[in-house]
Amino acid sequence: MTPETPLDRYDSRPRQQAPGPGGTYVLCAGGTGGHMVPAHCLALELMARGHHVHLVTDERGLRFPGLFPGVEITRVDAASTGRSGWKSLPSVALSIWKGRSTARALFKQLRPRAVVGFGGYPALPGLLAGLSLYLPCLIHEQNAVLGRTNRYLAPRVRAIATSFPRIRRMEGAWARRAHFTGNPVRPEVLAAREMPFDAHAPRLKLLVTGGSQGAAILNRIVPAALALLPEPLRLHLDVTHQGRDEDRDAMLAAYAAAGIAPRIAAYFPDLPTEMAASHIVIARSGASTVAELAVMGRPSILVPLPIATDDHQADNAAALVAAGAAQMIRQSEFTAERLGEALTLWLADRQGLETAAAAARAAGHPEAAKRLANLVIATGLIA
């Protein structure tokens, strides 16, 4: 893509702000952590610069503890046709209209400098309200594929921030307003970035994470794959596995058969530290996971979720594979034998593992929140 303005305009250096109190910026995000976390990171950056932030979200967006400290929040109605298809369209349209009306009334009071959307249907009512009031609006895309809500909004907004240099489903006309900023990651991730990576340690640490709910296929295949590894490789592994409680007994039995005593939990309170302490991570390839792996510089074996919209997780994983930082195994090919081959590639070649870690770190964008804030502020200054 060719940005309308040179990319270095949105580099990581904070911009000189006009004197006086900071402005107000509205962030529209909800639904999943993949949308909420980058919005949270932008909020922290804007507030650190003296600005005021207001979050517009849906019911699900209220369920993320620890995000948006000190930020005022307004819940609006939002809905998607989802699996119901066209049958639910009238009720969905009514929900979006109600959410838009609530957001319009709020914006007339707040008079924000800009409205920022983070994709997903919960962002739609707020962005529609901002556009109807002719406020400066922009969107941020976390994935390597422009999502459906963002595709709908792209022709109407002033700027499109992207997390990857190349984005699939980005029309040529929209690309002229696209700016590569990267995907913001949490401060805890940036702090964990400082942990050293030693590919030649006597024991290597493997982290398996399928998200907060776990991934059943990872819980089943990973222990079986480790059992196939040559004993010198297998017995020098320490395994941390985030998996569902209902799978715990079966996982423990499978790991015991492989001669491994893992740490297993359905939830780790400090996953960034667990990730940074690892030498290899086996995970899905959601936008936040991919961004965090790159920022920390951790090699990964990625198994894209096959039902992700537009197969965007495969595109996310492919970006790290192209950088030499990851291996990707499609779920249809994710067998114990195939995973064993992928693990052996790095476990038997420590120098190759070190090279992959360096490639991951080079692909990371720890300054993404600053770059996105610069773009948001610049967009808000355009009359």
Rank of each mutant, 00 (worst) to 15 (best):
R166E: 13
Y152C: 10
R169G: 04
I160E: 03
P165G: 10
R177W: 07
M170H: 00
A173D: 14
L135E: 04
E171P: 03
H140R: 11
T149C: 06
A159T: 14
F180Q: 06
I160C: 07
A154C: 10
R156F: 14
S163H: 03
A144S: 12
C137G: 05
V145L: 06
T181A: 09
I167W: 04
R168F: 11
L135D: 02
I160P: 01
P155S: 07
L146K: 12
R169E: 12
L133N: 06
Y134M: 06
A178W: 01
G147Y: 08
T162E: 05
R176K: 15
A175H: 03
R151T: 04
T149F: 04
R166D: 02
R177M: 05
W174C: 12
P165C: 04
S163G: 14
I139F: 11
P165Q: 09
L135I: 07
A173P: 00
P136L: 13
M170I: 04
N150H: 02
R148F: 11
H140Q: 15
I139M: 04
F180C: 02
R177A: 03
Y152F: 15
A159L: 15
F164V: 04
I167P: 02
R169L: 14
I160N: 09
A154D: 09
R156N: 00
L138E: 07
A173C: 10
V157P: 07
A178Q: 01
N150D: 03
P165F: 06
L135S: 08
F164D: 04
P165I: 01
N143E: 00
V157Q: 02
H179R: 08
H179G: 10
T149A: 10
F180N: 00
E171C: 03
A154N: 11
W174Q: 14
M170Y: 07
R158A: 15
T162V: 14
I167V: 15
F180R: 04
Y134P: 00
L138C: 13
Y152K: 05
A175G: 11
H140P: 01
N150L: 01
R176Q: 15
W174H: 15
A178K: 04
S132G: 11
C137Q: 10
R166W: 02
R169Y: 05
R169V: 00
I160A: 10
V145E: 14
G147M: 08
R169P: 00
P165T: 03
R151K: 09
R148W: 09
R168M: 09
L153F: 11
G172P: 06
E171A: 09
Y152H: 07
I167K: 01
R156D: 01
A154E: 10
W174K: 00
G147P: 13
L153W: 01
L135W: 00
P165M: 05
L153D: 07
F164G: 03
V157S: 08
I139V: 13
W174Y: 13
T162Q: 02
A154R: 11
L138S: 11
I167S: 03
R148V: 12
L146T: 03
N150Q: 06
I167M: 13
H179V: 13
E141T: 04
V145Q: 06
R148E: 11
L135G: 05
L135N: 07
G147A: 08
N143A: 03
Y152V: 11
A159Q: 15
R148L: 14
L133P: 08
R168N: 13
G172A: 15
Y134W: 09
R168W: 12
R168K: 15
E141Y: 00
R158P: 09
R151Y: 02
V157H: 10
I160K: 06
P155E: 01
A178Y: 05
